[in-house]
């Protein structure tokens, strides 16, 4: 008579189909992690610190940030989803760059970002620079 635990293990044990599909998800995660690790290493070699939560995009050779879609994009996405269409949530591409910051600003930015979510630091910097460049008339107001 099999024990209760061995029966549970048997039930929990994934079958071939699940294992096949899971292997692809694991493989994808591994590939993405490896690419991220490679890019982190590459930037570390150049004495550049990057946020390890950012992901590397193979197509564009840039480090992508996680972008929170604005309301209109979310609306379009949900409408497509509701109408039964297969939809892919498109992440906005971001270009990885680096620069030196004044220590007091860096501390403040880090403090703000630590209260938010992944990608908030980039959002804050983008917003600040965008506002300044709009004010200078370098770029058009959105």
């Amino acid at each position: 008579m099999p024990s209760k635990n061995s029966l549970k293990d048997k039930i929990k044990k994934p079958n071939a189909t699940q294992t096949f599909f899971n292997s692809y998800e694991e493989k994808l995660e591994e590939t993405e992690k490896k690419q991220n690790d490679d890019i982190v290493e590459e930037f570390k070699d150049k004495n550049v610190v990057i946020d390890e939560n950012e992901t590397y995009d193979n197509d564009t050779n840039v480090v992508n940030d996680v972008v929170v879609n604005n309301e209109d994009e979310d609306d379009d996405y949900l409408r497509m989803l509701a109408s039964g269409n297969k939809v892919k949530k498109v992440k906005k591409k971001k270009v990885f760059t680096s620069f030196y910051m004044d220590p007091d600003l860096a501390v403040e930015v880090d403090n703000i970002a630590s209260r938010g979510e992944k990608g908030d630091k980039s959002k804050l910097i983008n917003k600040a620079i965008r506002n300044l460049l709009e004010q200078y008339g370098v770029i058009e107001r959105k």
Binding site: T17, F21, G84, K86
Partner: peptide, 17 residues
């Protein structure tokens, strides 16, 4: 049943239609 399971898994993960 094995093939139906492949269909279900494909449907769930990649092709809801």
């Amino acid at each position: 049943p094995k093939f139906l399971e492949i269909i279900e898994a494909s449907k769930e993960r990649y092709n809801p239609s």
